[in-house]
Nucleic acid binder design. Structure first.
Lengths: 213, 213
DNA sequence: TCAAAAGTGTTAGATTTACACCCATGA
DNA sequence: TCATGGGTGTAAATCTAACACTTTTGA
């Protein structure tokens, strides 16, 4: 039994997945998700956490199970049933050096190459589940810095759902959600004029959890 | 690795799950889902189909994966990772004799007893996924006979979502879906006056698949 | 001074919800 | 004849979608 991780990140208005070159046979050199075998002493969730930590150096990532993939011949070597997980990370938390060291790359979800074994199917299902989750729960923030502009948030939802949104309607909806707090801070990296920075307040959300985008 | 099956059925305006008494140690005699071990020669989907066939005598059931359950101590005996599946069946297709022979019972989803190991969690997750599926895809028909009345269909959706629906609004929405066809047949078992029987037309649905309930 | 992103309301149309009575029949 | 479930339409309220201009500032 193994675990494979689909790491989603958001950068440059694009939704991306972290992939690398496979380091073992069979399939050495092919594009692949990062994974590992489940130890007898750990649950599969623990295995996924551990694998994510090895890969990113980060703990307590938002992570959800995608499902078990169990075709007999899915792995050209021995019989391996793999459980896929997806995680959402803020790419600015990710150490650029780790990326280079390990030969990993962020690739746009719309330009995914052929991956090893059934990894493309895993990504497909992960994407579907992730989209659904982002529409109904406030987890998109996991893909952004703690402070973000409304334009960034809008670009995120556009990238995830693959369609443009109306700026005024989008902001109207955000204003109704008290748990998306406006700060007095201004971000000037995205424009000359500068944009207010917002933050997600989990407390406020827990008191009145109604989210819909 | 094993597979556990959550069989949903609809009867007497109630959503039910098929459970039985466990026949092996550990946990002999406890209420339990029906399951089996994955053979090395079969995929986990195939294992689920096979297990469902053993249990119901039916093939080609509507079946979806719920997910992998992999706590280290989930099974009091050896380490077993189990993949849960749910299936939708029409209870009138189910041989009543099989039920008695095997000591199985249909229990109301709202009156589920404590089940073996983590089976209650499996049912919980299956239910959540199944509800979501029924809202967005026309699969509820799998829980009904080929011919059904609109009242039966409404009761089904009420049982699944746990809330009453307005009869006129419900029927208005059904009328908009051309793939739910009215026949000239009348069912007199449910009322003195009799009610028209309807059927789901998969062809028509495929031509214009928009379903929402 | 101008290009580029930030910010802001209103209205028409579509969708959703609430609601009450007559019909047909078997017991 | 009456109790039971079958069948039908309308109007108010809510939600959604479309749409354009002013502001700020660094280059």
């Amino acid at each position: 039994m193994s675990v494979d991780c689909i790491i989603f990140g958001f950068d440059n208005s694009q939704l991306k997945v972290l992939i690398g070159r496979r380091k073992m046979d069979p399939g050495r050199g092919e594009w692949s998700l990062y994974g590992g075998f489940v130890a007898t002493s750990e649950s599969i969730d623990e295995c996924a956490s551990r694998t994510l930590f090895e890969l990113t150096g980060l703990r307590n990532l938002y992570m959800r199970q995608v499902g078990a993939f169990g075709q007999v011949d899915r792995d050209p070597g021995e019989r391996v049933v793999s459980v896929a997980y997806y995680a959402l990370i803020n790419v600015t938390d990710y150490d650029e050096k780790l990326l280079l060291e390990r030969g990993l790359e962020w690739v746009d979800i719309n330009a995914l190459p052929k991956l090893y074994s059934d990894h493309n199917r895993m990504v497909g299902k992960a994407l579907k589940l992730m989209r659904q989750k982002l529409r109904t729960e406030p987890v998109g923030f996991r893909l952004l810095p703690a402070l973000f502009t409304l334009t960034q948030l809008q670009r995120l939802y556009e990238a995830v759902n693959g369609e443009e949104l109306d700026k005024r309607n989008f902001r109207k909806r955000i204003k109704e959600m008290d748990f998306i707090e406006k700060t007095e801070l201004i971000d000037k990296t995205g424009s000359k004029r500068g944009a207010y920075l917002y933050r997600f307040n989990r407390r406020t959300y827990n008191e009145d959890p109604n989210f819909k985008l």
